[in-house]
Design a binder for these strands. Structure first.
Lengths: 117, 117
DNA sequence: GTAACATACAATCAAATGGTTGTATTAGAG
DNA sequence: CTCTAATACAACCATTTGATTGTATGTTAC
C-alpha cells in the first residue's frame, strides 16, 4: 500500500482548487475530453484571463495538465489527483472507526484484559 | 440511491473548509473524540480567537457540530459530510469512465451502427 | 509576410481570508 | 457572591483571491 506523498501544502492546494464551481466544472469537462483554453473560456461568463487563472490554479493542484497542440493548449483532467483526494477522505473515515472501537471496548467492561496497553 | 442535496455554495464551503491544515487536524481529532474549543485552542500556535474562527468555518461547512456541556462547547466531527465529499469525488470518476467508453467504441471501428445517435 | 487567433503575463482593484487584540457574557468553583 | 475559566464577538490589519484590462508573443491561414 503506497503512502500518499502529498505535503500539507499540496493538500491545501488540492482542496482549495476544488472549492470553486467554475474550476470543478473545468475538471469535469476535461476528464471527459480534452478541451482547449479558449474553448473553455468561451463557456463561462467571465474574461479569458479569468478562466486562464482558474486553469492555472488547477494546474498547480495537479488536477489538470496542459499540452500544446499547434497554437492551442489542450487541457486534460487528471483522475489520479481525484483518487488521491478520495484516499485523504478515506483516512478520516478510519479515524472515526477508532472512536467506535473504543466505544465498543468500553461497553465490554467485564471483558478480560484489553489486547495491549 | 439518494441524490446529493448540496448546493454549489455548500460544496464550495465544504472543500474550502478542508483546504487548511489546522482545520483538517481539528476534524481528524474531533472524529475520534469530542474536544472542547479551549482544549483545541491550546494545541495550536495561534490565538484562541483564531481557532474559534477555524471551528466556525468547519461548522458552516457542517464538518463539525458544537454541543454545550456546562460552560464548554464540545466539538464533534461529522462523518456524514466527509462521506458527501467522497461521493462528489466519485462523480468525477464516473465522468472519466465515459471518456474510456467513448475511446473503446472508437477503437471498434468495424462495429455495426453505434448504440444511438 | 501579414492578419487573425490562441495564449501568456503584468498591473490593478475589490472582496474574502486568516490572523490579531480587546471587550462582553455566561457558567462553575470556592 | 465573587473570581475565574470558557466562550462569543467586534474591530482591525496584512495577505490572498478572483476578477478586470492592457500588452506582448507565438502560430496558423491566406
Amino acid at each position: 500500500m503506497v503512502v500518499l506523498e502529498l505535503s500539507e501544502q499540496d493538500v491545501n492546494r488540492l482542496f482549495r482548487a476544488l472549492a470553486d464551481a467554475t474550476r470543478r466544472d473545468i475538471v469535469r469537462r476535461t476528464l471527459v475530453t480534452d478541451i482547449s483554453v479558449s474553448q473553455l473560456a468561451d463557456s463561462y461568463e467571465m474574461s479569458f484571463a479569468a478562466v486562464q487563472k482558474h486553469i492555472a490554479v488547477l494546474e498547480e493542484a495537479h488536477l489538470v495538465t496542459k499540452a500544446a497542440r499547434g497554437r492551442e493548449r489542450m487541457v486534460r483532467g487528471n483522475l489520479v489527483r481525484i483518487h488521491q483526494a478520495q484516499r485523504l477522505l478515506d483516512h478520516f473515515e478510519e479515524l472515526w472507526r477508532s472512536r467506535i472501537e473504543r466505544l465498543d471496548s468500553l461497553l465490554a467492561e467485564d471483558a478480560p484484559a484489553p489486547p495491549d496497553t
